[in-house]
Amino acid sequence: MTQAYAEVIGDPIAQSKSPAIHRFWLAKLGIDADYRACHVLPEDLADYIARRRGDQSWRGCNVTMPHKQTVMALLDAIDPAAAMIGAVNTVVRSADGLLTGHNTDAAGFLEPLRADLVQPHLYRMARIIGAGGAARAIVSALAAQGFTLVVAARDPGKARALLDELAPSGEHHAVALSQFAAPTDFAFDDRAGLYDLVVNASPLGMAGHDPLVLDFSHVPPGSTVYEIVTNPRETPLLAEARRRGFTTVDGLAMLIGQAAAAFEKFFGVPAPRAYDTELRALLSE
């Protein structure tokens, strides 16, 4: 048998940091395997899955934009968590060629927030920008953690449908993305005991995409500003949030967290997280 491998697929894919992450861990553990990137156009997705299904060396793939939902119909089974979210970011091939879809985005997103989430809060609110595949995982994860959600999208109807599907209970709100672009004179009340998140769950601000236009008058005092974009690592959103003194979480946090969960599914051993500082330095070069 040729060398075992996994890969990441998407359109585009050249910007993906996943090969660097998984190869770093494989080297640290001395595992004779590889992890690659494969550019798959939407019209080629079914053929790609059919070809890989018969490849005994292929352990599976991570799935990024725009395939996280469309890939589901091509698989043999969907993990219950992924089925609930309605998006797959990890496909695992069993020894007999059966393909199962998982979602590690939700766990990866929550990982850097765990220390805060174990604390009691009077109220939790998250403002989420985006209504695509990544947003689905984030909405599902935060709803389960007791957040009231405000989802902003170019099409507020899509945001409303996402909330109705994934977080049907609770007083959640769908708004137009443009609402966050214009200044507001809203006076935030005392935030003591409250936990506020502002999350960019969209590709806005990513290299090659439109910028994210967010007026910081919509960001409550004491918020944590969380960016899932990784290219560039220091997005304008993060730079401005840090300049204003907000706590920030960069896109590498979620990327590494979800990759670790996928790595164990592909290669059967936990990712060596003791080297996270070294890995982050590598990814920042």
Results as ranks from 00 to 15, higher is better:
Arg114Ile: 08
Ala143Asn: 10
His172Arg: 03
His218Thr: 04
Leu282Thr: 15
Ala115Phe: 06
Leu177Tyr: 11
Arg273Val: 14
Arg53Leu: 06
Gly86Ile: 10
Ala134Leu: 01
Leu255Tyr: 05
Gly170Gln: 05
Ala95Gln: 12
Pro236Leu: 05
Val118Ile: 03
Ala271Met: 05
Ala6Asp: 13
Ala6Pro: 14
Val40Ala: 04
Ile228Phe: 01
Asp250Arg: 01
Phe263Gly: 00
Ala106Lys: 08
Ala167Met: 04
Cys61Ser: 03
Glu171Met: 01
Ala20Ser: 13
His209Ser: 12
Pro236Val: 00
Ala192Gln: 12
Thr64Phe: 04
Asp215Lys: 05
Leu45Asp: 06
Ala260Ile: 01
Leu26Ile: 06
Phe263Lys: 00
Ala4Arg: 13
Trp25Asp: 03
Val118Phe: 00
Trp58Ala: 00
Glu43Asn: 07
Leu142His: 09
Asp250Thr: 04
Ala46Asp: 11
Ala131Ile: 00
Ala181Met: 08
Gln56Lys: 10
His22Arg: 08
Ser18Pro: 11
Ser178Thr: 15
Ala274Met: 10
Ala134Glu: 00
Pro220Lys: 08
Leu238Thr: 04
Phe188Thr: 09
Ala81Phe: 00
Lys158Gln: 12
Ala192Glu: 12
Ala135Trp: 00
Asp210Phe: 11
Phe216His: 08
Leu99Asn: 00
Glu227Ala: 02
Glu43Trp: 03
Gly208Leu: 11
Ser57Ala: 15
Gln3Arg: 15
Asp116Gly: 08
Gly60Cys: 02
Arg124Leu: 10
Asn200Gly: 00
Leu255Gln: 02
Ala176Asp: 13
Leu279Ala: 10
Glu7Trp: 13
Pro211Gln: 09
Ala14Thr: 12
Leu45Phe: 10
Ile78Cys: 04
Tyr123Cys: 14
Gln56Ile: 11
Ala281Leu: 14
Pro112Ile: 08
Glu171His: 03
Ala176Gln: 03
Ser57Tyr: 03
Leu255Ala: 02
Val118His: 01
Arg36Gln: 06
Ala207Ile: 14
Leu166Val: 05
Leu282Glu: 14
Gly170Lys: 09
Ala46Phe: 07
Asp96Cys: 14
Leu238Met: 08
Gly130Thr: 08
Arg23Glu: 13
Gly157Lys: 07
Asp76Phe: 06
Gly245Trp: 15
Gly245Asp: 15
Met72Arg: 12
Asp32Ser: 12
Leu177Phe: 14
Pro270Asn: 09
Ala95Arg: 13
Gly208Ala: 12
Gly268Arg: 01
Asp185Trp: 09
Ala6Glu: 13
Pro156Cys: 15
His39Thr: 01
Val225Phe: 05
His102Asp: 07
Phe266Ser: 06
Glu264Pro: 07
His121Gly: 05
Ala82Arg: 02
Gly130Glu: 06
Ala37Phe: 06
Ala253Pro: 05
Ile9Thr: 03
Asn62Lys: 09
Met254Cys: 01
Ala126Thr: 09
Pro221Trp: 10
Ile128Asn: 01
Leu75His: 07
Glu240Cys: 15
Cys38Gln: 13
Ile138Cys: 01
Gln258Ser: 04
Gly101Arg: 07
Lys28Ala: 10
Thr235Trp: 13
Glu278Pro: 11
Val71His: 00
Ala131Glu: 01
Arg52Asp: 01
Glu285Arg: 12
His39Gln: 07
Leu149Asn: 07
Ala176Asn: 08
Gly108Ile: 00
Gly54Gln: 13
Thr235Pro: 09
Thr104Gln: 03
Asp76Ile: 05
Asn62Phe: 11
Glu227Arg: 07
Gly245Val: 14
Pro120Asp: 14
Ile256Ala: 10
Ser284Pro: 02
Asp105Gln: 05
Ala4Phe: 07
Leu279Met: 10
Leu110Gln: 06
